[in-house]
């Protein structure tokens, strides 16, 4: 299933422009306070899940428009057991994923989560996630705040120019 270009574009623009929703928009148990408005997520998406495979990757750009460093310590998504920030590296011909315990985004800068680089890995998915058109995600920050957003679900299509080129730049 491929979403029309305009659908993806509008969703991306909407995600980047709308005020952050409070963390309580999704029921994950304890609800940290939502972060201040200058922190934004753009172009969030997740490759469509494969039946039987309970792992998913989520890609996005996190913009820290605030004046203080933003420290990501984790993530969660309803229906998944765990959310971990991973970095994929390819060195000496081998590719591996390394967990990132925390990631600091300096003020005025952004962090790009993209294929074969930094990504959010969700594990332990239930079957209901195979057909969802979006994935709700909440990033957790060291200061006790969080940021919720929806990641569009579509194909990890090798013919998507952007994805292909991003996939083409493993760190080594």
């Amino acid at each position: 299933m491929k979403l029309p270009f305009w659908t993806i574009l509008m969703a991306a623009l909407t995600a980047s422009a709308m005020p952050l929703r409070p963390a309580a928009a999704h029921d994950h148990g304890a609800h940290p306070a939502s972060v201040a408005a200058p922190v934004k997520v753009r172009q969030a998406w997740s490759p469509r899940g494969v039946p039987g495979v309970d792992t998913r990757a989520v890609y996005f750009e996190l913009v820290n428009g605030g004046t203080a460093p933003l420290v990501i310590i984790g993530a969660e998504s309803p229906g998944f057991r765990r959310g971990v920030i991973h970095e994929t590296t390819t060195a000496s011909g081998l590719t591996r994923m390394t967990p990132v315990e925390q990631l600091t985004v300096p003020p005025g800068q952004s962090a790009s989560f993209r294929p074969q680089e930094l990504h959010l890995m969700l594990t332990g998915a239930g079957p209901e996630h195979q057909e969802n058109k979006t994935l709700p995600v909440r990033l957790l920050f060291a200061d006790g705040t969080s940021l919720s957003f929806e990641a569009l679900v579509h194909e990890a299509d090798g013919q998507h120019e952007n994805h292909r080129h991003r996939a083409a730049m493993p760190k080594s």
């Binding site: 490759p47 494969v50 039987g52 495979v53 309970d54 792992t55 998913r56 990757a57 991973h86 994929t88 390819t90 590719t95 994923m97 294929p115 074969q116 990504h119 890995m121 969700l122 194909e155 990890a156 299509d157 090798g158 013919q159 994805h163 292909r164 996939a167 493993p170």
Partner: peptide
């Protein structure tokens, strides 16, 4: 491996495109 969320899906998608 099938539970690889990042590298394998993009490689296979690219191979399909190739």
């Amino acid at each position: 491996f099938t539970h690889c969320p990042d590298v394998c899906p993009f490689t296979l998608a690219n191979l399909e495109a190739v």
